[in-house]
Simulated scan of single mutants.
Amino acid sequence: MILTTMCYIQKGNQTLMLHRNKKENDINGGKWIGVGGKFEAGESVEECMKREIYEETGLTALKLQLHGFVVFPQLYHGQDEGMFVYTCSEFSGELHECDEGDLQWVDNEKIPHLPMWEGDYHFFEWIQDDRFHSAKIYYQNDHVIEYQESCY
């Protein structure tokens, strides 16, 4: 299983979203996502999340909140992906250009209208409560064919 992180950085009623439009053969190509990525050797989940935030945005995460963990069976080039979903509302620094796509602060009410992975819309429900979410999302041809979720 490939382990990854995803964070929705928030300020006021906006969320920093990444429009993946710069990499060739990008599994996320054309979609709007949070920032994040794959673990490097020896990293904890929090170290990975903070590093990815800094590398992709130039921002330093001061406080992270974990909302859940999701498994995507055979999504990542035939391998299972496990992803930790975070938010960050306390950060420092200035945004810089990202080589994976365009970063943009998006009004939260506009997020449901962005072209995203179908399963990602659930993550915005997760961040509205104080529960921990665990999910398995099955995709086929870029569409959710099954969604299983538990909350704690």
Rank of each mutant, 00 (worst) to 15 (best):
S92Y: 05
E149R: 15
Y86V: 09
Q74Y: 10
M83W: 02
W126T: 11
Q10A: 04
Q140H: 12
E40W: 07
A61R: 04
E46Y: 01
C88R: 07
E90R: 11
Y76Q: 09
N13W: 02
E125T: 13
L66S: 13
L64E: 06
W32H: 07
H113L: 13
S89I: 01
E94G: 00
W32R: 12
G101M: 08
E100C: 10
R131H: 15
I53N: 02
W126P: 06
Q140M: 13
M6D: 09
D130K: 14
E40D: 04
A41Q: 11
E47V: 01
D142N: 15
M116F: 08
Q10M: 06
K50H: 05
C88K: 05
H143K: 15
P115S: 11
M6T: 08
D142R: 15
K50V: 05
C98A: 06
E149S: 15
V35G: 00
D102M: 04
C151Q: 13
G68S: 01
I2N: 11
E43W: 07
W117S: 03
Q140K: 15
E90C: 04
T4G: 11
F91Y: 13
L62C: 06
G101I: 08
H77N: 13
F123M: 15
M17S: 00
K23W: 06
E52C: 08
S134H: 13
T57F: 01
T15G: 00
M6V: 10
M116N: 09
H19E: 07
G58N: 01
I137Y: 07
Y121V: 00
M17P: 00
K31M: 12
V35P: 00
Y76D: 08
H77D: 07
E46L: 00
G37T: 07
V70Q: 11
M83C: 13
E56V: 06
R131C: 14
T57E: 03
G36H: 09
L114M: 07
L62Y: 05
Q79V: 04
K31H: 06
L66D: 10
L64S: 04
V85R: 03
G30C: 08
F123Q: 11
G68W: 06
S44Q: 08
H133S: 12
G119D: 09
N21Q: 01
I9K: 03
L75C: 01
M116R: 13
T87K: 04
K22V: 00
L62P: 00
G34Q: 04
Q79T: 06
I33K: 11
C7W: 06
Y152I: 12
Y121I: 02
Y138S: 15
F91H: 05
Y147L: 13
W105R: 10
Y147T: 04
F123P: 01
K136C: 14
G119I: 10
E43D: 09
